Simulated scan of single mutants.
Amino acid sequence: MTAPLRRTPLHALHVELGARLVPFAGYEMPVQYQGIIAEHNHARTKAVLFDVSHMGQARLPIEASAALERLVVADLAGLQAGKVRYSVLTNAEGGIIDDLMIVQCGSYLWLIVNASRKDVDFAHIAAHLPAGQALTPQPDLALLALQGPAAADVLKRFAPAAKLMLFMTTETLRIGDVKCAVCRSGYTGEDGFEISVPADQAEALARMLLDEPEVMPAGLGARDTLRLEAGLCLYGHEIDETTTPIEAGLAWTIQRRRREEGGFLGDKTILRQLVEGPARRRVGIRFEGRAAARTDAPIVDSAGRTIGTITSGSFSPTLQAAIAMGYVSTESSQPGTPVAALVRGKPVPGEVVPLPFVPHRYAKP
């Protein structure tokens, strides 16, 4: 028998708001409230609130940074307090166990990992820590994501310091009467914040934010179309244990010291690909017409030869066009290369385009 679906601290609120709930990563999660396109467009013009409490949160003492550095490609020694770094956990072959956010909080690191991988990630990290150092999962915390161009104006009404934060920084803020750990980051390509809050105060915080006129609730459907337009990877689609960071277009996550010194799992494969190039690369594809190629659809070249596979695809509400990401052979990865995806056996023509499909609008200096 399958295990019963878990629920986040906002489950009752989702039901009250009329969400359509679906199974996702072992949880019962909202896929939409008023419709995916409406929620997507609201995120691009105003602000939406996502419940991402299914994701894994954990604390690691700062003394364990060196041990964690052996498992990720990021330079953690150079990560200053109050800063956030996106990175990947790698295996001995250079494949990606998961992608994660690493937040430097002074006396500890705060880790945020994918819901579908948190048990794997936490066990992997714990197994590589020296005696006396422990990873502490935080199941008593919820996580909300306020995303969109109006997000900063909304949050500053409750916590004025939020307006001064920059992309990939963190602060401890009091939002109303709720003390929260806040990162200026997100998974939409828009400006926004990810807010870690005690589970028993999550509903009060969500209601407070949803009461603001610019904010509407949004579900996993809009989150997926937004991240696809932003060219962001989804575990199990663009990245997995058979995909390296170089193939995935994530070479930028490997800071200079790590490129020079290595010292992480899979470093020989990853650093070799960094110099020589991989045999395949993640690309964006924009198709003619409105038919969307879905996950696992074959990609063919102009001669009809199979050159790769679609990993994610959808109709883009912002561009009003069918878009996808996928892997193709390196020789077919240049922007402007004509390709086609086989949809129900029929070729849908398109071309390789630069990522992201929609420019990012992060709060940078």
Rank of each mutant, 00 (worst) to 15 (best):
L5D: 14
R6N: 06
R7D: 07
T8G: 11
H11A: 02
P30G: 03
Q32F: 12
G35Y: 03
A38D: 14
H40L: 06
H42L: 04
A43N: 11
T45H: 10
V48Y: 12
M55S: 02
G56N: 08
R59T: 10
E63P: 09
A64M: 00
A67M: 08
L71E: 13
V72I: 04
V73I: 06
A74R: 05
A74C: 06
A77W: 07
A77V: 00
A81W: 01
G82R: 10
Y86L: 04
A92N: 14
E93L: 00
I96K: 11
D98V: 00
I102F: 01
Y108E: 15
W110V: 00
A115T: 04
S116M: 10
F122T: 00
A123I: 01
H124Q: 08
I125T: 03
A126F: 01
P130L: 09
A131V: 02
G132I: 00
Q138F: 03
L143Y: 14
L144F: 03
A145Q: 05
L146Q: 04
Q147S: 03
D153W: 05
R157S: 08
A159K: 00
P160N: 05
K163D: 12
L166M: 12
F167G: 02
F167K: 07
F167Y: 15
T169C: 13
E171P: 03
E171R: 15
T172C: 13
D177K: 14
A181C: 06
G186Q: 12
D191T: 13
S196M: 14
S196A: 15
V197H: 11
P198A: 14
P198L: 09
L205T: 08
A206P: 12
L209K: 14
L210C: 04
D211S: 12
A222Q: 09
R223N: 06
D224N: 15
T225R: 13
L226Y: 01
L226C: 04
R227S: 02
L234T: 09
L234S: 08
Y235W: 15
I239F: 03
E241L: 00
I246W: 10
E247K: 01
E247A: 07
E247Q: 15
A248V: 00
G249N: 01
L250H: 11
W252S: 12
W252E: 08
G262E: 09
G263H: 08
F264I: 00
D267T: 02
Q273H: 10
Q273Y: 07
V275M: 08
V275A: 12
G277D: 12
P278S: 06
A279N: 12
F287I: 00
E288T: 02
R290A: 14
A291M: 09
A292C: 06
T295R: 11
V300F: 11
V300T: 10
S302N: 07
S302D: 14
A303F: 09
I307S: 06
I310W: 12
T311N: 04
T311F: 02
S314K: 12
F315N: 11
P317H: 09
T318N: 14
A321H: 04
E331M: 02
Q334G: 08
G336H: 07
L342S: 10
K346D: 07
V348N: 15
V352W: 02
V352A: 11
P356S: 07
P359C: 02
Y362M: 10
